[in-house]
């Protein structure tokens, strides 16, 4: 117990306690929703409120998961998909940032490219799938290309916009020291845009998953996307739902990793 004469710390402790209490309640309801959802699903499937063939049930998905872990096939699928997604996402972000740098470096090029960027951005990139598969061959390279293409244009546009919005006075400071255009880019424009680049990274996590899963639908060889399309073809919706759940978990993990990177990179602003 704290001495009663010391008023302030005890008030502060109360405040902290109320914060902790609030946090516990939020976690509690989140857990309720999580558990409740799966219990309801299980019950609905068992008592035939929903079609168990179509919606399966958590217990069936669980036993399928165990089986897939035992025979080891699951990890190779997950590995392939993760590899493609991470690569597609990194390539998309890097290429987009490089393109944005080019646009910044050559203002006339950016004026010329403007309408084409709008068209490319508006076009549904997954429609390029068949062409990519023929161009790169029905293997992981075309899937990575898919994951890249889907995020590269939007990255270019967002990053270029942030390049242009960098406070001109930072560049003025550098110019008064006689900095070259490259030095201005390296010292002011690029670091000032890190927050924007990271936030496109967050968007690109989601986009790359879309690209890679669609790519795997089309190539149909391996990966989680293949598991979905295969499950659909043999009418095994337990397999489809299992893949979906795994994708949800992995995408969330990737997003959290990016959020962690963001935190450590831009802690000083």
């Amino acid at each position: 117990m704290k001495p009663l004469t010391n008023h302030k710390p005890s008030l502060h402790d109360q405040y902290l306690a109320s914060l902790r209490k609030e946090k516990r309640w939020v976690r509690f309801y989140q857990l309720i929703i999580f558990v409740g959802f799966f219990m309801l699903w299980e019950a609905a499937s068992r008592y035939q409120w929903i079609d168990p063939l179509l919606f399966s049930s958590p217990s069936k998905i669980w036993s399928l998961l165990m089986g897939k872990i035992e025979d080891g096939s699951l990890f190779s699928h997950i590995g392939v998909t993760l590899f493609e997604t991470v690569l597609g996402f990194i390539l998309g972000t890097l290429l987009g940032t490089c393109l944005a740098a080019l646009l910044w470096w050559f203002p006339r090029f950016s004026k010329i490219a403007d309408p084409y960027l709008v068209i490319l951005n508006a076009m549904p990139k997954v429609a390029l799938g068949p062409i990519l598969i023929v161009a790169f061959g029905p293997n992981f390279s075309s899937i990575i290309a898919m994951g890249t293409v889907i995020s590269v244009i939007i990255t270019t546009i967002v990053v270029y916009t942030s390049f242009r919005e960098v406070d001109a006075n930072y560049i003025k400071v550098l110019k008064t020291f006689g900095a070259s255009r490259f030095q201005c880019f390296k010292e002011a424009v690029l670091p000032a845009s890190f927050p924007a680049i990271i936030s496109t990274l967050k968007v690109n996590v989601g986009l790359s998953w879309v690209g890679v899963i669609v790519g795997e639908f089309l190539v149909s060889k391996q990966g989680l996307g293949y598991m979905i399309i295969y499950g659909f073809q043999v009418f095994n919706f337990t397999l489809v739902l299992l893949s979906l759940l795994i994708i949800a978990v992995l995408a969330t993990l990737m997003y959290q990793i990016v959020a962690l990177i963001e935190k450590s990179l831009i802690k000083n602003r």
């Binding site: 006075n169 003025k172 008064t176 002011a188 670091p191 000032a192 000083n268």
Partner: peptide, 13 residues
């Protein structure tokens, strides 16, 4: 020539 602006414009990073 040294130039000083209205605000500090120290690079925050």
């Amino acid at each position: 020539v040294g130039y000083m602006l209205q605000q500090d414009y120290l690079f925050p990073w």
